[in-house]
Amino acid sequence: MANIIKIRNISKEYNMGVEIVHALRDVSLDIDKNEHVAIMGPSGSGKSTLMNILGCLDTPTKGLYEFNGLNVSKMNDNELARIRNKEIGFVFQTFNLLSRSDALHNVELPLIYAGVSSGERKRRAKEALEQVGLGDRVTHKPNELSGGQRQRVAVARALVTRPSIILADEPTGNLDSKSGDDILNLFRELHEQGNTIIVVTHEKYVAEHSRRIISIKDGLVESDVEIENSRVPNGMREELTA
């Protein structure tokens, strides 16, 4: 069984001075290789905290987190940075590209921290940009690209290290519905190519594009269901029926 993520009874508490906030209480879940999962919940549900822990940006207060068999919950900052670099590709709601660098350098960035040589970096970054359909926008800076294009640069950046999972936090939140559908469609393709994708969202519509929906509420897993017929993005459906 190819278990990428194994979480057992994790809790996260924030000390807010006067009171302790329990963002997560005793959450357990497993995510396998090549799954397409949506983590869904309203704001304040603890889904962002879960996403930060899954993404190794943060560690749980209690409980066990194993990533590819490695105990992440006990790692120090630099070890976590290494896991983020090699194993996780992030896609953020606000794209989070470096505004002064062109698309190519943005995509190259994680490879720099992975110690890949310059020529190899350029080649792989270009390849990733072509994969998301931006082969002709390599030298454009983020402010010369549309929102959808920016998010595709971000997806290319997430793909370029060939990570174990792609973790997307509200990837369509800042996009119009057409561009949003494009991104969801891209995720679907990437999933079909064998990638493991985790999308964190509060939108039912977005969550329904995945194969499994984990609902979080008040720091607890409310439901965890497989979807037989996941939604096909609008644009796609027309293509399929045509």
């Binding site: 940075a81 896991i83 670099n85 090699k86 992030f90 989070n96 470096l98 960035l109 950046r157």
Partner: peptide, 12 residues
């Protein structure tokens, strides 16, 4: 923050 999320260690 972006660089760190992409795996830049403290040293970098």
């Amino acid at each position: 923050g972006i660089r760190k999320s992409l795996g830049a260690p403290k040293r970098s």
